[in-house]
Design a binder for these strands. Structure first.
Length: 220
DNA sequence: TGCCAGGCCGGGT
DNA sequence: ACCCGGCATGGC
């Protein structure tokens, strides 16, 4: 499916580099990946600011803080009790398996590391892949709800494919590249969130109508 | 005012 | 192997 490359080129020409992931360190990227599950980034940013203010953006600090206090600090990111448990589970995993070292963590081969990350409570396929790509610079394609909608719109998927099947579609039809996979996923999210909403009403001027998620177009 | 956001888990079929 | 309810705040 060579069109997958054409989509990328069109999106990149239209919107340019998205400068993802907006995290200052690898660890902050990982924390953001967990906090942004089904949550808008603006809510996550508030939580990250609170954690930074409290000097908690390190594995050791997150292990030492109590779960209830952690939950209170990340309240703005929603699902805050679950997410506090998830952050705790990750830093525990990191220390037990890798002595708290992200260098050691990301030195593990991609497939093996993906399995390990997904075995951690609260880390599913998308979060694992976001961590691998945006924090670890491993060349994996991140799939999300927008990705599915766009493929369905172009009739390259019908809603029955698994996460991994969608991922393979991209990975087997694109040359593996951390930089390009990074931009591609970011551009897909950008088109989904930025256009064709009631408040935005920019559908008519959008040169990339075919790339918009179907539901967004209908609403807009 | 409701709807939804860069998902995941656990229990039930 | 799927399907679904629960989890929760903040912005428009």
């Amino acid at each position: 499916m060579p069109e997958l490359r054409l989509y990328y080129d069109a999106l990149y020409r239209a919107y340019g580099p998205q400068h993802w992931w907006p995290g200052r360190t690898r660890f902050e990227v990982i924390v953001g990946a967990i906090l942004t599950q089904s949550t808008s980034w603006s809510n996550v940013e508030q939580a990250l600011r609170a954690l930074r203010r409290e000097k908690l953006l390190s594995p050791g600090a997150l292990e030492r803080i109590s779960t209830p206090r952690l939950a209170g600090l990340i309240r703005s990111s929603g699902y805050f009790q679950q997410k506090a448990d998830k952050l705790k589970a990750f830093v525990h995993f990191l220390r037990k398996e890798y002595g708290g070292s992200l260098d050691k963590l990301f030195a593990v081969p991609t497939r093996e590391l993906r399995e390990q990350l997904m075995s951690v409570r609260g880390i599913g396929p998308e979060t694992a892949d976001s961590i691998l790509l945006y924090a670890g610079k491993h060349a994996v394609f991140v799939v999300d709800a927008y990705t599915r909608r766009i493929l369905e719109r172009h009739q390259l998927a019908d809603g029955k494919q698994s996460y991994e099947q969608i991922q393979e579609l991209f990975e087997q039809n694109l040359a593996a590249s951390v930089a390009m996979f990074n931009e591609y996923h970011a551009l897909i999210v950008h088109t989904g969130k930025h256009f064709c909403r009631k408040s935005g009403a920019r559908c008519e001027e959008c040169a990339l109508r075919p790339f918009l998620p179907r539901s967004e177009e209908v609403r807009g």
